[in-house]
Amino acid sequence: MADETTPRAPESGAPSSGGPGPRSGGPRSGGPGGPGGPRKFFRRKKVCKFCTEKIDAISYRDVRLLQQFVAERGKIVPRRLTGVCTTHQRRLTRAIKQARNIALLPFAARY
């Protein structure tokens, strides 16, 4: 999870791979992480955890699962950072909010 937070800004541009392609001349267009030009680190394609692991039910009771998609302060981590697909993000959000209501997850971390 942690390593996926670093490449946030470039990733948003990567899906529309036509953009940076002509500009940089396509030095390594073969990379699946997106031809980002002079990027220092390799970015692997983010995939939806729920689609790949075939997790159908996102229950508000499954704190372990939900915790992975909540930031330190208790915020829901956006899709562009985690790679979760739209459908599952919606269900995930609902589950997290339900879990917050029954005090399984914090609304905000206490300090």
Binding site: D56, Q98, N101, I102
Partner: peptide, 19 residues
């Protein structure tokens, strides 16, 4: 001190369908 009610049947229907 706290309670929550969640309707589960529609979710269950969806899960059965996927299954």
């Amino acid at each position: 001190i706290k309670f929550i009610t969640v309707r589960m049947d529609e979710e269950q229907k969806r899960l059965d369908k996927i299954k």
